[in-house]
Design a protein around this nucleic acid. Structure first.
Lengths: 345, 345
DNA sequence: CACCTCAATGCAATCGATTACAGTCGAGTT
DNA sequence: AACTCGACTGTAATCGATTGCATTGAGGTG
């Protein structure tokens, strides 16, 4: 029960604590004989380094903190998983926090991570504006990378996908399927992702001459419930357009469900598209056409940026990176293919 | 960029570090005037305690570690969320780890948490047998609670639901719907949960005289893919029974999908039940009848047990608690109600 | 043989906060 | 006036690992 310290190992091996430390951390020269004795003693006693003490001494914890808006959103969950794997490869661990989509909780989490001396922070900010002070302040103290979403007006590294390009693909696909009018269902413009996706949607809709009625842009939050509610509202206020373009898969799943519940066939009468390609988008009925985010690449880039930032340190806080990856459209059954025959995945 | 230490605050306020510490941690007597000076100085400098240093000194981190088999399984995700909320109420933070269903990774995570001086650990073991050494060893060093699943032959606190009682409810419900034969689709018997659920299934099936063919007990893993594969196999090897009882919702979702893909109507021709009541079970087509686990209660009890264990400490490591909560059956559309009319939720 | 080099090892300071112990001082007691 | 008490505050040890500097001694050189 009693923790074993380096001093006990030293005593048992008949050497000083310095030597034990040198053996265990593979730094400095130690003769083979002594090394064997020390390892022996350490094993016998079941010694384990006290990470806390080590962290205090060299102010490195080999731990990275990650803050996401909601751990129950499958997109973030799998992003977390990707990040964890990427970190594992570098022998680092992940300290995960859920901000519950509340910038205040988020700020507290960030502060707490900083106080815990994590080596860096990966954050997908909850709010495009309100998250700013906390994020910027944290970024001033230690390496920080924003993932997926970002806060307006902050200067930090960022990794995500090109939402505008993705939306162009979505709109082109819908256009090919004969779409003449579309609605957009997203969250309030408090996330950069919604903003970008909407911008991409609107621009390409114009170029393709697809009609978007002003009252058919509905903004709520990223949830199944909101998707359902939005469709109910559309139907009540004048009917559905040819296509429903949703800012994420959860909304799209809710929207699809609501369409069917109200007797509209998907994709025959209404087409629906999502964004993120969460696992359940494949399982929905009909399977959802969506935008696949290269999560592993995003995670890998984020981890790489953090590592780089840790090295550079204060030295030359060069210009910040903004890495924008290209997502791919995954066509399934909630949209019509170019011609009649339904697509399969 | 430079971290502010207690010494700097002390100097600025013209007092000793001891006094500053007393003010900031609200321990011991300090005159009002000095207190004001110190707070002033701390604010001016933007002082933040160094959690690492504090932890080293009083070997408490106000952090609890949690290890789950897979962070992408929605059941565990929402369990994590519940635990986080419960901890938040006590001012503690959560350090989350994903074991990727591998006892070796799990062991490494547990060791790492212990080395980080977490105040306690909540773990849902990946394997009913192989997880044992690591779990037991960790439990010997610090407070540990097993959640949901447990390892055979360990003596630690445990919180979960009564799987046998749950399965009785499921079987009674199916029986009411006229079921005469059933198959069981679960994971390999390497998780206590599958074991318990299968035991409950088998016993009640016998009592109700529901036929279970020996080759209609299929064991794979907790995933959608396995649910699909299992149904394909059943169909290939002689057809489906009246009902498919699945050990978790992911399997059930896959099973449902496969049934429909092969042209079997659910619930008219085959009934399907799940377990866990994850969010998507409601969204499936048809919505899944499943067993709802009281996640918040489970989490709350686990946190309570940890707190109690921390206090008792070595003193009287009394007998360990095994708290078994009662889950509730949620009837939706993948099973037939007592009579004909389909149920709604 | 005197002197130098370098590997191996130990001593002790250090990271930052907490706290046991001791000292100071003013008010209250006898 | 001497003494007690208690509120405040400071000094220094402590938590456990790391590491700069000093020391030792073996082997090499001229």
């Amino acid at each position: 029960m009693q923790r074993v310290t380096i001093a006990q190992v030293a005593e048992r091996a008949g050497v000083s604590t310095a030597t034990v430390s040198r053996v265990l951390s593979r730094r400095g020269q130690v003769s083979a004989a002594v090394e064997r004795k020390v390892r022996r003693a350490a094993d016998d006693l079941g010694y384990q380094v006290n990470v806390i003490a080590r962290a205090l001494r060299n102010s490195r914890t080999d731990t990275v903190g990650m803050v996401v808006p909601s751990i129950t959103n499958p997109f973030f969950t799998s992003l977390v998983e990707s990040v964890e794997h990427a970190l594992g490869r570098e022998g680092k661990e992940l300290f995960l926090c859920d901000a519950r989509s509340d910038p205040r909780i988020e700020a507290r989490r960030l502060a707490s991570l900083a106080a815990r001396n994590v080596d860096g922070i990966i954050v997908s900010p909850s709010h495009g504006v309100d998250s700013r002070p906390a994020v910027q302040q944290t970024a001033d103290r230690l390496p920080l990378v924003q993932l997926d979403r970002f806060v307006d007006g902050t200067t930090t590294d960022w990794v995500g996908v090109d939402d505008v390009a993705a939306m162009r693909q979505v709109m082109d696909h819908l256009h090919d399927g004969g779409t003449r009018s579309a609605a957009f269902i997203g969250s309030l413009m408090t996330h950069s992702s919604t903003e970008q996706r909407f911008a991409g949607f609107r621009r390409r809709a114009e170029e393709l001459n697809i009609e978007v009625k002003p009252d058919q842009v509905l903004l709520g939050d990223y949830s199944v419930e909101w998707g359902e509610a939005a469709v109910a509202r559309l139907i009540a206020e004048g009917g559905l357009p040819d296509a429903l373009v949703c800012a994420d898969d959860l909304i799209a799943l809710g929207a699809t469900r609501a369409c069917r519940a109200h007797g509209f066939a998907v994709p025959q009468q209404v087409q629906v598209t999502g964004y993120d390609d969460i696992e359940f988008s494949r399982l929905a009925e009909p399977a959802l056409t969506t935008v696949h985010q290269p999560r592993d690449r995003i995670a890998a880039e984020a981890v790489r940026l953090l590592a780089a930032a840790s090295l550079a340190k204060d030295a030359e806080r060069g210009p910040h990176a903004r890495i924008s990856l290209v997502p791919t459209l995954v066509v399934r059954d909630s949209t019509r293919a170019t011609q009649a025959p339904p697509a399969r995945t």
